[in-house]
Design a protein around this nucleic acid. Structure first.
Lengths: 155, 155
DNA sequence: ACCATAACCCAGTAAATTACTTGGTAACCG
DNA sequence: CGGTTACCAAGTAATTTACTGGGTTATGGT
């Protein structure tokens, strides 16, 4: 399972682009400055984002980056996938060969967890990120067993 | 966000204990053998699990470990917490000082993600893990925006 | 009493990954 | 034509993970 500073930086930078969508192009120098991220590191991340078609770059003075799609059309999952490779929680990367060429005892668990995470990150767009009403409210799901330990399953 | 082999090993080992709950004590040698995990590494993990009161150990010949509570009373989150420290996805570990001593642009997002993950892992017990009907079914939530990018919200 | 077995404990290390640096080239604008 | 910015490739420092080694302590069997 991969979810590190790299992915966080990428989402932060993309959120920045989303915020300044009308302003026009945003340079990496600005983003680096605003969020305290190494500019060269950002360049690497944007190389990936560009390859995935999430941003367009323009060179020369006054150049910079902009989102290649509307803010509502880019999910956080898209961004993380681009730089982080995957949010897969299984060891076998989906193939069911974790132990002795068959699924390990916990394979299904990690697969399910991966699906949950993916479902959540896919449901949140850059537009959601930059408008402040907590996305937790947006993505609210019924809580079934918030405290499974201390009580009988009454439902 | 931390969710690595360490946590997976721990959950696998605990699931093994859950499976052999009636049999009595299970030695680390058995677990190591069955799942291809280094025994010394397991010892470290079980030190943490013991400190958290999730398992009881018995020394001497015929000794080993057993769950200190019923299988239904131990969640996957308990296990991962014990060895992995946290499944917190934020950089600031919950404190809102990610950038310039205030919450960064994406703080809420990671906090919400952490809550989602926690909610899921808390809802799955060791009993769920070892009985095969996919826990995905158990923890099934209504899908709101499975593919937000490519279609209108028709629901 | 003794020995084998297992938990228990501490500290070190190899491998992998992440985060970042350095040093360039290519397009664009005035 | 010179400065600015994206774009590209490779190397390195720091951190973390996964694992090893060398012990001590409790217990059960003979």
């Amino acid at each position: 399972m991969r979810l590190t500073t790299k992915g966080r930086y990428a989402v932060t930078a993309m959120a920045d682009l989303a915020l300044h969508y009308e302003t026009g192009l945003v340079s990496l120098a600005e983003i680096a400055e605003r969020h305290g991220i190494s500019q060269s590191y950002l360049e690497q991340l944007f190389a990936s984002l560009r390859r995935r078609g999430l941003v367009d770059g323009t060179r020369g003075p006054g150049g910079g980056y902009r989102l290649s799609k509307p803010r509502e059309a880019i999910s956080v999952a898209d961004v993380i996938d681009a730089v982080d490779e995957s949010v897969d929680a299984t060891r076998c990367r989906g193939k069911r060969n974790c132990h002795d060429n068959e699924g390990c005892l916990t394979h299904d668990l990690w697969e399910d967890l991966s699906n949950q995470i993916r479902r959540f990150l896919t449901s949140v767009t850059l537009a959601d990120v930059i408008e402040k009403p907590r996305v937790d409210v947006i993505a609210k799901w019924p809580e079934r067993n918030p405290e499974p330990v201390r009580r009988e399953a009454s439902a």
